[in-house]
Design a protein around this nucleic acid. Structure first.
Lengths: 189, 189
DNA sequence: GGAAAAAGTTGCTCTATGTCAACGTTTTGA
DNA sequence: TCAAAACGTTGACATAGAGCAACTTTTTCC
């Protein structure tokens, strides 16, 4: 098993070496170009992705054509559209690689089979969902509860990686503001 | 076991009657007055609540004193501040009853004990987290992606119960707008 | 049942942020 | 390596929605 995924499991579970190696064949390595899409709106999501290097973003496009970024999966994190994965419905969001990335893919069926039958994967999935819950709770309160400058400072503090690695356009779409406003705010920081 | 909780389990799991009855003692019934608080900001959350009648809301108060409502748990749903329950950190949100309500309470320790040791409760918890994921994904995109009128229409369509049963003040805080704006929008619907 | 409090409505004004256009800078890919 | 495209910045202007105040209506609870 790839060492990054191995330490992910080791951090969250007490799985033994043998079982870890048994899980390995479920994951296939895939290289993704910068800006390549792994999922488009309207498609049913069929994979869960674990990022080895680079990063993926989840975003949607509203009816005016504006992008809204909900989540960035950096290396060492799982990232996929769980809503589509869980419901089997067509996705309302896109998954796009923002950098040249290497990911491990596991199919939806394999993933949920392991969630049901392998306690370590059940634990991992529980942790993913709990982390998502905690993050989105903060996001809803912090983003809806303050003005643009407040949100910018919040992001700088909470997610500095997003700042260092992503374009202003993506950062703005993550904060729910236009790139123009972001540019002006940064000039006044 | 209370019939509402029983059918909740029956809908989501294949638990047998005997095990269901074994779970019963973990849940204690509690009557809550209208507007009573079950958790305040700064307190560590110690219970999970299952609503038998009435409803609970989860909300926070920002530094200007404005409320932001994140979730309403109506009858037949679990509702608590899972962030505080999971992390053990003081809550950033309040839990308040919006109507005279009857709830079943289970302690945090009992709840997580059952999540680990009773597959049906593990499944229930997984379902709660998955539902929260799906709801908040839609919320982030639909609420950040449109203007006030769009959000109002979205709420009317997605959550009509919120409209029928809650005050405009609470609805406005759920939509992230002021009660004045909501009042004006409704006049123009 | 009635006084007091809370919630809802509406006019006026103000402000943060969006929109659009112009222009410079950086990145991309043939 | 260089032209084209994408990105970032900034000014002028437009506008959705906030803030506040006055007033009406509904709810609460002695």
């Amino acid at each position: 098993m790839h060492p990054i995924l191995k330490s992910y499991f080791r951090d969250l579970t007490q799985i033994d070496e043998e079982k870890l190696e048994a899980l390995s064949p479920y994951f296939k390595e895939k290289t993704v170009k910068k800006n390549e899409f792994l999922l488009r709106e309207g498609e049913v999501c069929r994979f869960n992705y674990f990022v080895l290097s680079g990063c993926l973003r989840l975003f949607s496009v509203n009816k005016e054509g504006l992008e809204n970024t909900r989540y960035i999966a950096f290396e060492g994190k799982f990232g996929t559209s769980f809503t589509s994965l869980i419901t089997g419905d067509p996705s309302i969001e896109y998954i796009q690689s923002l950098e040249k990335s290497v990911v491990l893919t596991i199919t939806k069926d394999d993933f949920f089979y392991l969630v049901e039958n392998e306690p370590a994967v059940n634990k991992i999935y529980r942790n993913i969902l709990e982390s998502a819950y905690i993050t989105t709770q903060k996001r809803i309160y912090d983003l809806q509860g303050s003005d643009s400058l407040g949100r910018l400072k919040w992001l700088l503090k909470q997610q500095p990686r997003i700042f260092n690695r992503l374009s202003n356009k993506v950062i703005a779409s993550y904060l729910g503001i236009t790139q123009y406003t972001l540019s002006r705010l940064k000039a006044n920081l």
